[in-house]
Computed example of a mutant assay.
Amino acid sequence: MAVTDRTELRLAGAGGQGLILGMQILFRALGLEGKRAAQSQSYEPTSRGGYCYSDLILSRDASDYPLVTGLDVIAALSQVGIERSLPFIKPGALVIVDERLVETPPTGPFKLHVLPLSERAAAIGSPKVANIIALGAMAKLSGVCGRDALEEAVRLETPPKFADLNLAALKEGFALDHLALADA
């Protein structure tokens, strides 16, 4: 996927899944690469389990509107995350959903990849890193950001005691591209 003058990305799911942190990491990585971006988020007032998303607008020039109007890339870690985001998904967009947490994957004129995000997170030691696995898959499949910058951003944005686990999760996300291509 080529980055255009304006590329809109979203991590969506439920509160407590680390979606905001995921986009903060991507935002930092894009900054390390010298790219322009704006990041925003929204969540329901419940602290865990309510609808939550975090968006990132990547643009070549200063964006005149820093909020999503049409998603080019989305990774959803829950059914509600994908359902509430569907109206914003552009035709031809890259759509990544968790195979376990999104029981009914969407259909439409987009590139859908159903991936074992939460399963892989549990396998490497913590279900809490599904967000970072999704981030790695999103970056790899979209080409929006390089792996080196993402690794550095993980080191900068996460507590040192979780850095190794998050770096392992990022590596896992980048490795999922062979599965995603089989789904395409």
Rank of each mutant, 00 (worst) to 15 (best):
M1Q: 12
A2M: 13
V3P: 00
E8H: 06
L9Q: 06
L9C: 14
R10A: 09
A12W: 08
G13C: 07
A14E: 15
A14Y: 03
A14M: 12
A14K: 11
G18N: 02
L19Y: 08
I20R: 03
G22I: 04
G22C: 00
M23Q: 15
Q24Y: 06
Q24H: 12
Q24K: 14
I25T: 08
I25G: 00
L26G: 07
L26S: 06
F27A: 12
A29E: 07
L32E: 02
E33A: 10
E33W: 01
G34R: 04
A38P: 04
Q39N: 10
S40E: 08
S40Y: 14
Y43W: 11
Y43P: 05
P45N: 13
T46S: 15
R48Q: 12
G49Y: 09
G50Y: 10
Y53Q: 12
S54K: 02
D55G: 14
I57K: 09
L58G: 02
S59A: 15
S59D: 02
R60M: 07
D61A: 14
P66K: 13
P66A: 12
G70N: 08
G70W: 05
D72R: 08
V73P: 06
I74D: 09
A76V: 14
L77T: 11
S78H: 14
E83I: 14
S85N: 13
P87K: 11
F88Y: 15
F88K: 06
I89A: 11
I89T: 08
P91F: 01
A93Y: 04
L94H: 09
L94I: 15
L94W: 13
V95S: 11
V95Y: 11
V95G: 13
I96T: 07
V97K: 08
R100P: 01
E103M: 14
T104D: 11
T104W: 14
P105C: 13
P106G: 01
G108M: 06
P109G: 12
P109L: 03
F110W: 14
F110N: 04
K111F: 07
H113I: 01
H113G: 03
H113P: 05
L115Q: 09
L115S: 04
P116R: 01
L117Q: 01
R120L: 05
A122C: 00
I124W: 03
S126C: 01
V129Y: 07
V129P: 06
A130M: 09
I132W: 01
I133M: 00
L135R: 05
M138N: 01
M138R: 02
K140E: 12
K140Y: 07
L141S: 05
G143N: 09
G143S: 10
G146V: 10
D148C: 00
E151F: 05
A153I: 04
V154L: 07
E157H: 00
K161M: 00
F162Q: 08
D164A: 03
L165A: 04
N166K: 02
A168G: 05
L170D: 04
G173Y: 00
F174T: 04
A175L: 09
D177C: 05
D177G: 00
D177Y: 04
L179V: 13
A182V: 08
A182L: 05
D183R: 15
D183N: 03
D183Y: 03
